[in-house]
Design a protein around this nucleic acid. Sequence first.
DNA 1: GCCTTGACAATTC
DNA 2: AGAATTGCCAAGG
Length: 104
Amino acid sequence: MSTLARLRRVIASVPQGKVITYGQVAEAAGFPGAARLTVRALYGGAGLPWHRVVAAGGRIALMGEDGQEQRLRLSIEGVTFRGGRVRMELHGWVPRARRWHRER
DNA sequence: GCCTTGACAATTC
DNA sequence: AGAATTGCCAAGG
């Protein structure tokens, strides 16, 4: 399992109406502190629910129209905002801890 | 291999 | 509140 594949697996695990932060994705994939890796994973990740990945504090990282697109997709799924940020206390997704050393 | 690039994050001023 | 600073890690040139 490649590094980026692990990150993408985490991203793919986020259900509709939920969101996760870049940092949490990296952490759940086994790279605490490497939030930027999540960005890389998103690049080649066709078919991923990219709109469910937000910056720390529920901020929308994308600027311009892409950001609007993300807000739209999220609100369609039932995600609510407050002051331009996703209400993490309501929609934050906590992925199950994975054990990457051995498959089961 | 070294250097740069990212849709980041936490800290500090 | 906002800018600057530093840490983080894999890919690609």
